[in-house]
């Protein structure tokens, strides 16, 4: 069989088309966001967005929700994934199936289920005040983030010899909680950061849960601005994109810093 000949021109053409597919709309959005003033380019749309106290409040709220979702998810998923891997390997396929469910059940069904279960007339009226609705929203985000966080954490556990590390710690007198906190969790720092980044990306743009639970998150704010303004939504899209890249850089930095784990 003749060896495959390199096709540099075809490869570059495919790469150029793919790169254009992603970058041209982005460049157009950036240009449009800078075109608010008729007599030249300006950051006026950005100034308006960033000086809007509602944006800052919505951004802060969603960020707080994302942090809460990451913390709750980590506390829930790390011990569960560790336990399944170590003591219940036969259950692994079932746990994987359950963690995939949020991907096949649309958020609209999830939130209507929440409203039916936790409305103010139910046995657990979580929607009866703002704080408990915030908590309900956080749990909703934990559910949405579960497929991603579980997989990143499970991949992290797969990359180390969980059983031997656990046995080594047990032989040194450590109990389950100490093993989890002192041995397993530090080794999963990269995986948790990876999952946290994905959770952040999901929560910052999420609309359905926040809107139907009537909470002042970034998703409903973006929708409101998009429906009523011209240049500001483009500026918001660029800001959101920049934040995403900042988070990726942040993750990369910390995962490289994790010192050989």
């Amino acid at each position: 069989m003749a060896p495959l000949k390199p096709q540099p021109l075809a490869a570059w053409a495919i790469f150029g088309i793919a790169a254009g597919f992603f970058t041209i709309p982005l460049i157009a959005t950036v240009i449009f966001s800078l075109s608010m003033k008729r007599n030249g380019w300006s950051f006026e749309a950005y100034r308006i967005v960033l000086s809007d106290s509602s944006f800052i409040a919505a951004f802060g709220y969603s960020l707080a929700q994302a942090i809460a979702a990451v913390l709750i998810s980590t506390l829930l998923i790390v011990p569960a994934a560790y336990w399944v891997r170590l003591y219940l390997p036969a259950m692994k396929q079932w746990v994987e199936f359950i963690t995939l469910l949020p991907l096949v059940i649309p958020s609209i069904i999830l939130v209507f289920g929440y409203l039916r279960l936790y409305n103010s007339a139910s046995w657990l009226p979580l929607t009866s005040n703002a704080r408990s609705t915030d908590a309900l929203l956080s749990f909703g985000y934990v559910t949405l983030a579960m497929p991603y966080l579980y997989r990143t954490i499970d991949a992290g556990l797969r990359a180390m010899d969980v059983r031997t590390l656990t046995e080594a710690a047990q032989s040194l007198g450590a109990g389950p909680l100490n093993i989890l906190i002192r041995v397993i969790l530090p080794c999963l720092r990269g995986s948790i950061l990876n999952g946290a980044f994905l959770t952040l990306a999901i929560v910052m743009g999420e609309f359905t849960l926040a809107s139907l639970l009537d909470r002042p998150a970034l998703g409903p704010y973006l929708q409101l601005i998009g429906a009523n303004r011209a240049y500001e939504p483009a500026a918001l899209a660029v800001i959101a994109f920049s934040l995403t890249w900042f988070c990726m850089g942040f993750f990369q930095y910390f995962s490289n810093w994790r010192r050989g784990v």
Partner: peptide, 10 residues
Amino acid sequence: FQAYALFPAM
């Protein structure tokens, strides 16, 4: 242990 089992983050 055969595989050393040192705690990698320490």
